[in-house]
């Protein structure tokens, strides 16, 4: 088997707080093959954004490995890290906060080209910016506009163009469509799928919305309080969810149809604090199927079907 484009081994990120260690990302092992998309799903505070940033070393991990093309990038020094970032990019969640308000659209997209010295001279840079704007569907007349003049959907297109400018292989997409209206959300998702096909991109797609990742992902990982509780190929996860948390998450999605009836399976309680978590399964306090093993030790990761992993004592 070929080497996966991106792999993490035992990746951990603990933040030190006044009350102890906050386990934001706790022992995450993922693999993404080139050209594929891994969806990472979870509620706020489950560590999904921290995972995305730790993979790019925008946050330094506490422990573990991140391998890109088979090489552990955690050992890289600053200079080789800058070089590798050409291949690894990120699209941020909030298209309102992630663009410099004092730069024009053209300048924002050109910035990575200067930093990574990809284009030579002004003319080449300008041409590249124009062609990028065309790729993401931004009209040329916006080149000298400032971000505040544009709406959310167009701003997110700038974010995508900026990430694409350095010809990356791998992009962390951190909730790229959560801040957008549904009709615009669908436009951006289609655009991202087209770009993936054309440029053989690999995505780590972070979102809280299970209905969004279904379309774009090949594989989905469900996170809860820093742990990956279930990982399966997209189709398998939706047709055969095994972890009680995944089941609850899926049944909590309001479906825009009448015959679906009301929600039956509402889980009680809220997400606990990730600071110094108690031993055992982290979902145990909210789990409807809790048994005495759940609070003793962490359940082992079981492969119940091909490529379908669950972290639960039930299996």
């Amino acid at each position: 088997m070929s080497v996966p484009l991106l792999e993490t081994k035992g990746l951990k990120k603990y933040f030190k707080t006044k009350n102890g260690f906050l386990h934001a990302v706790d022992d995450i092992n993922i693999k993404i093959d080139e050209g594929n998309t891994l969806g990472v799903v979870g509620e706020s505070g489950c560590g999904k954004s921290t995972l995305g940033r730790t993979i790019l070393r925008l946050i330094e991990p506490t422990e573990g490995e991140v391998s890109f093309n088979g090489k552990n990038i955690i050992e890289y020094n600053r200079k080789s890290m800058v070089a590798i970032r050409e291949k690894m990019q990120i699209i941020f969640q909030d298209p309102y906060a992630s663009l410099n308000p004092r730069m024009t659209v053209g300048e924002i997209i050109a910035e990575p080209l200067y930093v990574c010295k990809i284009t030579k001279g002004k003319k080449e840079t300008n041409n590249r910016v124009r062609s990028l704007m065309e790729t993401v569907g931004l009209a040329e007349r916006y080149e000298n506009a400032y971000p505040h003049e544009l709406d959310g959907g167009r701003r997110q297109r700038i974010g995508i163009a900026r990430a694409l400018s350095v010809n990356p292989k791998f992009i962390v997409c951190d909730e790229p469509v959560s801040a957008l209206d549904v009709s615009i959300q669908a436009q951006i998702l289609n655009l991202m799928m087209d770009l993936q096909e054309e440029q053989k991109l690999t995505y780590l797609f972070i979102t809280h919305d299970l209905s969004v990742v279904k379309h774009i992902s090949d594989e989905i990982a469900v996170m809860y309080l820093g742990k990956c509780v279930e990982k399966a190929p997209s189709k398998e996860l939706y047709s055969n969810p095994k972890h009680p948390y995944t089941q609850a998450l899926l049944s909590a999605i309001p479906i825009p149809k009448l015959d679906q009836g009301k929600i039956v399976n509402i889980i009680k309680g809220e997400v606990l604090s990730p600071i110094n978590p108690a031993p055992g399964c982290r979902f145990a306090p909210r789990c409807p199927y809790i048994n005495k093993d759940c609070t003793v030790a962490e359940p082992p990761l079981c492969e119940i079907n091909e490529n379908h992993f669950v972290l639960c004592t039930l299996y």
Partner: peptide, 16 residues
């Protein structure tokens, strides 16, 4: 049409 349908297997969405 813009809402991803969980019960169907379509790859592309059809936005406005």
């Amino acid at each position: 049409n813009s809402i991803p349908d969980l019960t169907k297997d379509t790859k592309r969405l059809s936005p406005i």
